[in-house]
Design a protein around this nucleic acid. Structure first.
Length: 516
RNA sequence: GGCGGCGUAGCUCAGCUGGUUAGAGCAGCGGAAUCAUAAUCCGCGGGUCGUCGGUUCGAGUCCGACCGCCGCUACCA
């Protein structure tokens, strides 16, 4: 059983999670759940990034200690991820001892293997005494810090530890070009390659005057710069440097936002190479959730809160909407109109109604027991002659797996829904109610058995996207095996003939249109 | 400024290495059916494929210019 170590970016502890955070976690969770269905030994990591100056500021503003602040934030984020059914196996926080230990160990390992890669140098920049940090770029307006326009920025020099990033340009570039380190989607890979081709500068990896951080090994006067610290979380969670960490490492997939490819595709691999550790195998950089085509910015006042979006139709519906409509590669729009349209057309009308009508007919015509049809096999027995829906399931499932293997989650969702659509057409074509009236029992058995099989298969394909609904549908058959034990490879053999089915619920109720 | 991407039916998008009447889903309109959440199924799409010019027997599909969006170019998690 191949292992599959997948991670999300760890979130910064300075505000509540929003739809953008949610898209990333849901997408990663979708991939993790899919890999489990495919039979991999999945290890799925999520967590929090809890160091740096802005944490101190946020804590001070809230009148609590930094630790109390990050505890509160971590609890809040974790609560949202539970509501969204994230199936992470581990949850790491960069304030944990296991993380500090790994950061120290990694730096010491670099120093031991490539001593020249770490050196001290002067860092010069504009320092804001209000923020207690260096300011660059857009943080400076008219020569003043945007947070403290009345203060004067002070040109300051600071002695820092540096990492010789420049020495790893060729090695990282070669890995990305050859695909040994896969960067997807392609547009992100091209951006990274161009960045590498343009050349790299060495980077400062320590800070003075930053008490809220991990002490720099051998120089307790300084702390490890927050980005350098944060990236290492993926390694910390494997147990590094203890023996056995390589049961998980290297990571098979880092799921991140498109804005941080530079850190994950260039700096992080270089850090690992310097320590003579294998770089990750793949990085997937998703796009952003927009609100009516505009950026969803925290400062501009987010148009919709994550809590609202979850409460609207439930976690499954939000998961499906984000993955199907917003997508996991490009930017996409969240609007209530689109959410409603997707929910109604796909989840309620196509899938929910299919499950309901199919199983209701089994109750009306066969007293709630799935006919064995022409198959006559047990619950997971060998298939008999395949019907049109079995063919459709095979085709859709193959396309689904091809898409999901490539992290094209939208396409996976399309294929899943396509099978449900085929089943609806099958009902129309075979008209079971006519078969019932005409007393064509054998044909009716075949049709109902075929529908039941298809519904069960849809429950399996649904799992990465709508885990709760998936379990609900699967549970209706009183299945012999928990869904967690089902594998995609068994899908064609899946049968529910002879099983008693529960009365189907309305899976995705449509709110009555409110009178105007 | 540098590098790159996008601009195809009301909406979201497919259209690979150029080749018969430009496609899908959703929405809309018409019809059928009644197992089902008034759900489903069938039928209906003349949209200058951003603009202009070029290459070619032939171009959303290649080249150039232009217009309009957008991304990456920050030691901002």
């Amino acid at each position: 059983m191949p292992k599959f170590y997948i991670t999300t970016a760890i979130d910064y502890s300075n505000g509540d999670p929003h739809l953008g955070h949610a898209l990333e976690k849901i997408g990663a969770d979708c991939i993790a759940r899919y890999r489990r269905l495919a039979g991999d030994a999945v290890h799925f990591l999520m967590g929090m990034d809890e160091h740096s100056q802005s944490v101190i500021q946020a804590a001070a503003a809230a009148g609590v200690t930094p630790q109390a602040w990050v505890d509160r934030m971590a609890s809040s984020f974790a609560d949202y991820w539970r509501r969204l059914q994230c199936s992470n196996d581990d949850w790491i926080r960069t304030t944990e001892p296991r993380h500090a230990r790994a950061v120290t160990a990694l730096l010491e390992r670099i120093r031991a293997r490539h001593p020249d890669d770490l050196f001290e140098a002067e860092y010069a920049g504009l320092y804001c005494t209000g923020c207690e940090e260096f300011k660059t770029g857009a943080q400076i307006v008219d020569g003043h810090c945007i947070e403290h326009p009345t203060l004067t920025l002070i040109p300051t020099k600071e002695r820092n530890h540096f990492f010789r990033l420049s020495g790893y340009r060729d090695a990282v570039l070669e890995r990305i070009r050859s695909g040994v380190l896969a960067v997807e989607p392609e547009i992100r890979r091209n951006e990274v390659v161009r960045l590498l081709e343009a050349g790299l500068q060495d980077i400062s990896i320590s800070r003075q005057r930053q008490p809220w951080g991990i002490p720099f090994p051998g120089d307790p006067q300084q702390t490890v710069y927050v980005w350098f610290d944060a990236l290492i979380n993926y390694l910390s969670a494997t147990g590094f440097p203890d023996a056995g960490y390589d049961r998980l490492w290297p990571a098979d997939l880092h799921v991140i936002g498109k804005g941080i490819t530079r850190f994950h595709c260039i700096i992080w691999p270089a850090m690992l190479l310097a320590a003579e550790l294998p770089p990750p195998r793949a990085v997937w950089a998703h796009g952003y959730v927009q609100w009516s085509g505009a950026k969803m910015s925290k400062t501009a006042g987010t148009a919709v809160s994550l809590g609202e979006a979850i409460d609207h139709y439930g976690a499954d519906a939000l998961r499906y909407f984000l993955l199907r409509e917003v997508g996991f590669a490009n930017d996409g729009d969240f609007t209530w109109e689109r959410f409603d349209a997707r929910y109604t057309a796909d989840l309620a009308n196509t899938l929910g109604n299919l499950v309901k009508r199919s199983l209701d007919m089994i109750h009306s015509y066969r007293a709630g027991t799935v006919p064995k049809g022409e198959r006559g096999a047990g619950p997971l027995g060998p298939p008999g002659p395949p019907g049109p829906l079995d063919d459709a399931a095979r085709v859709c499932s193959a396309a689904y797996q091809k898409a999901m293997d490539a992290c094209r989650l939208e396409e996976g969702a399309v294929q899943w829904m396509e099978l449900a659509g085929r089943a609806n057409r099958y009902i129309q074509e075979t008209a079971p109610w006519e078969l019932k009236k005409a007393g064509k029992d054998a044909e009716l058995d075949t049709v109902l058995a075929s529908l039941a099989r298809t519904v069960a298969r849809l429950a399996v394909l649904a799992h990465p996207f709508v885990p709760t609904t998936s379990e609900t549908i699967w549970g209706l058959f009183g299945p012999p095996a928990p869904l967690a034990q089902v594998r995609l490879a068994h899908l064609s053999d899946l049968d529910v003939g002879g099983r008693a089915v529960a009365k189907p619920p309305i899976l995705f109720p449509k709110p009555r249109l409110a009178p105007a």
